[in-house]
Amino acid sequence: MRKVLVTGGSGKLGRAVLRDLVEHGCDVLNIDQAPLNTSICKSVKVDLANFGEVAEAILGGIDERGGPFDAVVHLAAIPAPGLASNARTFANNVPGTYNVLEACRLAEIRNVVIASSETVLGLPFETPPPYAPVDEEYYPRPESAYSLGKLLDETMAAQFCRWDPLLRICALRFSNVMNPEDYAAFPKFDSDPVARKWNLWGYIDARDGAQAVRRAIQADFTGFEAFIIANADTVMSRSNMSLLAEVFPGVPTKGNVSTNGTLLSIEKAKRMLGYSPQYSWRNEVAAKS
């Protein structure tokens, strides 16, 4: 049984990650500032901004909640732009990631997954993307304090891997996280293609996000890699080519653009992690209609 420490497991994606890891035989400890009102796994209140508390948890020093841990999944953060002041978002998120990475280094944990974000790709695409589908091949274009922080998280992770050639850190650039109950609103998106242009009409089912985390833990490479994590389709019923022609005219396409396939390319995650989305809002809505 693999022993995994998760930060931020009390959040929307975090709860799905905890459930998925436990269902796949992992012994999981969640550390978070928010209470976890569930029996999914053990949970401890930890301030991620306090290095001493983070190090104590990751080094296995919390009474009755000890390690050693085989892997660490870092999800905890203010989860989006505009939820707090820019300075507070940055001051909360970036030092928290440093604290986790440094504590993992001290504990000699060489299997780390961190939550990055689709926002590093240039969201909300007020400046059109360089091409579509977007992928990991162009340099990040942060447009907010939140996404700037995520880019710095990725940069730190790459340098930690440079220091230790045995270390693996996967940065998962999650799309907009959805639960099944959110899908009832999706059919209305077709009436206004501009409303969801900010992330190229993408989303990630929390359960598929959890699958990506598990596969990143199981990956077989060393060093730092970033992966876009989205579902296989868009939130729209309209075809991608009609959407791009109306909302992003002149943006070149790259490779094959399917009718409703994601415009946030997940090809790298498929190739290197074995990631394969299992859920779609279309099936959920159809099942309830």
Rank of each mutant, 00 (worst) to 15 (best):
S43M: 04
V44W: 06
V44N: 07
K45H: 14
V46C: 15
D47E: 14
A49M: 14
F51Q: 07
F51R: 06
F51M: 13
G52W: 11
E53M: 10
V54N: 03
A55F: 13
A55H: 12
A55D: 13
A55R: 06
A57I: 04
L59I: 03
G61N: 07
G61Q: 03
I62W: 05
I62P: 06
E64Y: 04
E64Q: 11
E64R: 09
E64I: 02
E64L: 07
R65K: 14
R65V: 12
G67P: 02
P68C: 03
V72W: 01
H74W: 08
L75G: 06
A76D: 12
A76C: 15
A77M: 09
A77E: 10
A77R: 05
I78P: 04
P81M: 01
P81N: 04
G82E: 13
G82Y: 05
L83E: 06
L83Q: 15
L83T: 08
N86S: 11
N86L: 09
A87M: 11
R88M: 07
T89V: 06
F90C: 01
A91Q: 03
N92Y: 02
N93W: 00
P95Y: 00
P95V: 00
G96T: 01
G96W: 03
T97Q: 08
T97L: 07
Y98M: 11
Y98H: 15
N99V: 04
V100M: 02
L101Y: 02
L101F: 10
E102Q: 08
C104P: 10
C104R: 02
R110M: 05
R110Y: 08
N111A: 12
V112A: 09
I114G: 10
A115C: 13
S116L: 06
S117W: 14
E118G: 10
G122P: 06
L123N: 13
L123H: 15
F125M: 08
F125S: 08
E126G: 06
E126H: 15
T127G: 07
T127M: 10
P128F: 01
P129T: 03
P133I: 04
V134A: 12
D135N: 06
E136V: 02
E137Y: 11
Y139S: 13
P140S: 00
P140G: 00
R141V: 12
E143D: 13
A145T: 15
S147Q: 14
S147K: 12
L148W: 12
K150F: 08
D153W: 03
E154L: 03
E154D: 13
A158N: 11
A158M: 08
F160H: 09
C161H: 01
C161V: 01
R162L: 09
R162Y: 15
R162C: 06
